[in-house]
Design a protein around this nucleic acid. Structure first.
Lengths: 209, 209
DNA sequence: TCCTTATAATGAGCAAGCTCATTTTATGCC
DNA sequence: GGCATAAAATGAGCTTGCTCATTATAAGGA
């Protein structure tokens, strides 16, 4: 029983590795599911026993990368948060930058994932990508809370998500040598959002008092 | 010769009308190109002589609606702009609201269009949707210029585009009775953007002087 | 009226994502 | 070892977007 479970995990890894290889060398669209199955030494049907769709495969790659990113970010965070007090925008920036660092190797073939899966539409469907979205927004909510904004409205989160996915989409096709253009866009986006959010809260506070 | 041109236009209309009917009654995904061709009384091949892809068909529907919206908005604008002086955010709001009004009948099946065509990724490809994007951004640039912001940076436009598409995506799946939630989101998004943009300009001006 | 030629229409066929009835494999029990 | 059963693997086949070689149509000229 345990042996079988191990084998399943091994097969899964074989699929994932074959997929990454092919996606990196040929891109997402030009790699067929038959290609992946052949490279992994299995039948097409088996591939779809492990991943619901071709895109779900990419989503799972992204999920892995994001989970690594969050671990690294948390570690980094625990080490420095007590001495220095970064602003909300800088805090958010470090989170997203950590994600981009881990997603880097997937950048070339991540476009379809960002397009169809990270789009604000995912909320409507029920997908693995929706979990990624919810997880990220929870992290943001918590982070924002630490900066004194306790009640983030759904509207605010929607706005954040638009800016976040906008930056990701830009990143996916950014041609500047080290993606400085993305970082600039991200920086401005998060500054705008932070300023607005904190202004919002102050405003409503003074209105109420 | 002229007769043929007329017939071509008629065929095109037949396709478009058949497509709208089917999309509205069955949705985008469940309507096949064969269905559309049959309903229009032509062969599949002919359909693809008129529209490059199934999505291009939807894009052309959206383009028509947007063009009507812009005409209406311009008319409305010329009538009122002299007496009242709305803020930049209100001006932008009226533009997007006019678009949404015209897109309304297509809302049910516009999701895939918004997702794949209006996403920030379009800039990379070469598509009809890219023209829509450029046209909209030019309009925004001009509008922003009238409010004293002469040099809108590419970064600023990218941020605007993220918020705009974010609102559109939300709108496509918005379940509130009359899409009030979308209007609220749009309102806040544009207020945030306008405030930031005008703050930007003031800041750099004082820096320079 | 017949021929030429440019243009539009056609639909069999291809490719690729995905399905599912069938077969293979592994485990537990006697 | 032999058998029952649950789970995993399989690949022929379906669907659907799209292509392209072939056919039909219509305008202009002799």
């Amino acid at each position: 029983m345990r042996i079988t479970a191990d084998e399943k995990r091994a097969t899964r890894r074989r699929i994932v590795e074959a997929a990454v290889d092919l996606f990196r060398s040929q891109g997402f669209e030009t790699t067929t599911t038959r290609d992946i199955a052949r490279a992994a030494g299995i039948a097409v049907g088996t591939l779809f026993n492990y991943f619901e769709t071709k895109e779900a495969l990419v989503a799972s790659l992204a999920a892995e990368a994001l989970s690594r990113a969050h671990a690294a970010w948390k570690r980094e965070r625990e080490r420095t948060s007590l001495n220095q007090r970064p602003g909300l925008d800088e805090d958010l920036f470090s989170l997203v930058a950590a994600e981009l660092r881990q997603l880097r190797p997937l950048r070339k073939f991540l476009s379809p994932f960002i397009e169809t899966i990270l789009s604000p539409l995912v909320a409507a469907r029920k997908s693995a990508a929706d979990e990624l979205r919810v997880a990220h927004l929870e992290r943001v909510t918590e982070l924002v809370g630490r900066h004194g904004v306790a009640d983030v409205t759904p509207v605010a989160l929607q706005m954040y998500w638009a800016l976040y996915t906008g930056a990701l989409a830009f990143w996916a096709v950014d041609r500047s040598p080290r993606q400085e253009d993305t970082l600039a866009l991200l920086d401005e986006s998060l500054q705008m959002f932070s300023a607005w959010l904190q202004g919002q809260t102050d405003g409503s506070k003074t209105e109420r008092s």
